[in-house]
Amino acid sequence: MKEYLNNIWSAISTIFIGMSVTWKHMFVPSVTIQYPDVKLDLPERERNRLYVNMDDCIGCDQCARACPVNCIEIETVKSLPEEDLGKTSNGKKKALWVTKFDIDIAKCCYCQLCVFPCPTECIYMTDVYEFSEYERENLLYDFATLTPDERVQKKINYEKLEAEKAAQKAAAAEAAAKAKAAEKKEDNKEQN
């Protein structure tokens, strides 16, 4: 009987204690924020979407080699001797056309390992974290500044240069071979 009455008393009193707690919480200011309107301040060293400042990129491929998931793909073409590509902001001379600089952000693991090797500090993490897409292809970011035509053109230019060089080399080699052959003949004659 005593236990029975105790049960009733503890049930009623604990219900009122609980109700007073929830009543107090009615007037506690909300701990949540109205997310798309209000955003929390991110920590100082947050790692989010990668960005490449192509004005400073020298196409050294170090970021692509540092990447543990191979999400960066870079292709470069040597510039012609008469072309001037300008300088990076920290004074390095650019010598390569970057014809491809793709970052597959869907693969990116946000480890920031690509950021440290960069000699010109042109690849870095931004504070953008809302970039969801409906199509997976849209997550393949193309950073190269050249137009598709220019990219092809730069390749052709370089190939022409190479071909010219090769032709010159071949011509030079032929000439050298001829000269050698002529020398040998003369030597043979002398021996005979």
Partner: peptide, 13 residues
Amino acid sequence: KVSAHMQDRLGPM
């Protein structure tokens, strides 16, 4: 709204 404010939320806004 009551449930939200009792849980320190704002509810539908």
